[in-house]
C-alpha cells in the first residue's frame, strides 16, 4: 500500500515500538500452523477459545487413540490373545455419556460469554457501512459520535496484484511487495487494495454490512470475525482495535469468478490522525457533492459506482 511509507514517518517512536510487537500478526507467515491472536480484545478471546477447544480435543484424542493403540498391541491374535465374550458394561457406558456432557459445558460456557459480548453492538463511537460488490468493497463512513459523515469510496484489489494474477501473466507473485506499518517489506500479493479502510484505534466501531449483488463475506482475521454481506439484509458487528497497523483479509463467501480477488485492507491509525484524515475526506466529499446535489438528502446515502 502506497500510504504505508508516508504513514510511518508520522509515527512517534513509541507507537512504532508498540506496533512491532504486533507485526507478526498482520499477515500469515509461510508454514504457519495456527490461528493468530489478532489485535482486538475479541479476537484474543476467540483465539483463546479456539486453543481451549483444540486442547480439549487433543486430550480426548490421547485417551481414545491411546486406548486403541494399547488394544492393538495387547489383544493381537498373533500374541495368542483369547477373545473375551463380554459386550456390555453399564458403568463404563454411563461414564462416557456423562463426562462428554461436562466437557461440552466447559466448552460452551466461554463460547456463550464471548458470543454475548460480540453481539453487543450498541454504545459504539462511530459507524461504517460495508457493502460487498462483485468484486470490490464499498465503504461509507456514516457517523462519528453524533456527527454525520458523507465519506464514501470503493476499495479494489491493487493494480500490481491484479496484473500478476492474470492467467499465465508471467509475473512473479513473490515480487508483489509493499512496506507494512513498521516499514518492513512484505509480500502483499492478492492482499492489497487501492484504498484501504482507515479506522481509528481504541474506538468502538460499529459496522453495518450488506451486499449489493450476491452474498460476500467481510473477513479480516486479525479482528476475530467474519460477516456475510447479503443483499437485502443488513448485519451489524463491532470492533475495537488496540494496535495501529495494517490488517489484511479477503472475501470469504464464494461470489463469482473474482471471489479470490477482492481483498480487504484495514489501516488502523491513532485517533487524532484518523479524525484529521476523515475531515479531509469529508471536505472533499461535500465539495464534490455540493454542485451536483444542492438539496442533498439528509440520509446521505452514497451512490453505487
Amino acid at each position: 500500500m502506497k500510504a504505508a511509507g508516508s504513514m510511518q514517518g508520522k509515527l512517534g517512536l513509541g507507537v512504532a515500538l508498540t506496533a512491532v510487537a504486533g507485526a507478526a500478526h498482520a499477515l500469515a507467515e509461510p508454514w504457519q500452523l495456527n490461528m493468530t491472536p489478532g489485535v482486538t480484545q475479541t479476537s484474543r478471546e476467540v483465539y483463546d477459545l479456539h486453543m481451549w477447544g483444540l486442547y480439549v480435543c487433543i486430550a480426548i484424542g490421547v485417551v481414545v487413540f491411546g486406548a486403541m493403540i494399547v488394544a492393538m498391541f495387547k489383544f493381537r491374535k498373533s500374541k495368542g490373545a483369547v477373545p473375551a465374550t463380554w459386550s456390555h458394561n453399564t458403568v463404563a457406558e454411563t461414564i462416557w455419556t456423562i463426562v462428554p456432557i461436562l466437557i461440552l459445558v466447559a466448552l460452551a460456557w466461554p463460547a456463550t460469554n464471548i458470543m454475548i459480548k460480540m453481539a453487543y453492538t450498541e454504545q459504539s463511537d462511530m459507524t461504517v457501512k460495508i457493502t460487498g460488490y462483485q468484486w470490490k468493497w464499498g465503504y461509507d463512513y456514516l457517523n462519528v459520535g453524533e456527527k454525520p459523515y458523507h465519506v464514501h469510496f470503493i476499495s479494489r484489489i491493487d493494480p500490481r496484484s491484479d496484473r500478476t494474477r492474470e492467467l499465465r501473466s508471467g509475473q512473479d507473485p513473490w515480487a508483489v511487495k509493499d512496506k507494512d506499518y513498521q516499514g518492513v517489506e512484505r509480500n502483499t500479493y492478492l492482499l492489497d487494495v487501492d484504498h484501504p479502510l482507515v479506522l481509528p484505534t481504541d474506538t468502538k466501531i460499529r459496522f453495518v454490512v450488506t451486499g449489493d449483488d450476491v452474498i460476500h463475506a467481510w473477513w479480516v482475521p486479525q479482528l476475530g470475525w467474519k460477516q456475510d454481506a447479503i443483499p437485502g439484509i443488513i448485519n451489524d458487528d463491532w470492533t475495537n482495535i488496540h494496535e495501529p497497523g495494517i490488517y489484511r483479509g479477503q472475501c470469504a463467501e464464494l461470489c463469482g469468478q473474482d471471489h479470490g480477488f477482492m481483498p480487504i485492507v484495514v489501516k488502523a491509525v491513532p485517533k487524532a490522525e484518523f479524525t484529521k484524515w476523515l475531515d479531509e475526506q469529508e471536505a472533499l466529499a461535500t465539495k464534490a457533492d455540493a454542485p451536483a446535489a444542492p438539496a442533498a438528502s439528509p440520509t446521505a446515502t452514497p451512490s453505487a459506482p
Binding site: A28, E29, L33, H50, Y189, W219, G260
Partner: peptide
C-alpha cells in the same frame, strides 16, 4: 487445517505466497 487457521478462504483459485508451502 493449517491453511484455514492461517487465513486462507476456501474456493479461491489463487492465494498469497504465505499459503504456498502447505
Amino acid at each position: 487445517h493449517f491453511l484455514g487457521l492461517a487465513g486462507m478462504p476456501r474456493r479461491i483459485p489463487d492465494y498469497n505466497v504465505a499459503f504456498a508451502d502447505w
